[in-house]
């Protein structure tokens, strides 16, 4: 029996699409290129096979995603994950929240911050720097966005420089994108 996961968790569920993923045997050369499928690398997730139906955006989306989350300099990788988690909470993308919360826990070797955020959202009792980051991410993720000059000033006050703030804007916004794909095109399942 499998069931849909409705509550935030760091135990990563399985993602089941609502639409039919691309059948690799039917892929065009352009799709294979975007999927980075090679004779030695034929494992592609259902999620990416769904996105391959729009190959023109997928071609740019994959390097963009990796750059925003993993490029060097700027905001720490762990703090970028808080931007991702903040967006995923607003949009209630259980799958994205699970992946990026667990990545934060791996990077920081601690579970307290995520546990507090899952329990209390922006009211979580976490250190001031993380609180300002989470608050900005949550407010930017609302529709219309609610982040304001005071939220931006709060980031400076807790010590973020402009390069770090740009990375936070990018990782938070990126999950406004990812959540709208993952949460609307499929569902998180526990098998």
């Amino acid at each position: 029996m499998s069931e849909i996961v409705h509550d935030f968790t760091t135990d990563i569920p399985v993602w089941k699409p609502y639409v039919t993923p691309l059948n690799l045997a039917d892929a065009t050369p352009e799709q294979l290129e975007a999927l980075k499928v090679t004779p030695s690398n034929t494992k592609v997730s259902d999620y990416v096979l769904v996105l391959a139906h729009d190959v023109e955006t997928l071609t740019h989306r994959s390097p963009l995603f990796n750059g925003v989350m993993y490029n060097s300099g700027g905001l720490s990788r762990a703090e970028r994950e808080i931007g991702a988690v903040g967006a995923s909470i607003v949009n209630r993308c259980i799958y994205c929240a699970a992946v990026h919360a667990s990545r934060y826990n791996q990077l920081t070797k601690s579970t307290d911050v995520i546990a507090a955020i899952f329990a209390d959202g922006t009211e979580a009792e976490i250190e001031a720097r993380l609180k300002a980051i989470l608050n900005f991410a949550v407010k930017l993720s609302k529709c219309p966005p609610e982040a304001n000059a005071a939220d931006m000033a709060a980031l400076v006050e807790v010590g973020l420089n402009k390069e770090e703030i740009l990375d936070l804007i990018l990782s938070t916004s990126l999950f406004g994108w990812a959540n709208r794909l993952m949460h609307t095109l499929g569902e998180p399942i526990r098998e």
Binding site: V19, H53, R61
Partner: peptide
């Protein structure tokens, strides 16, 4: 999927 990418990207 094309529609979803449009909405998601613009957001």
């Amino acid at each position: 999927v094309r529609l979803s990418e449009l909405v998601a990207f613009v957001s």
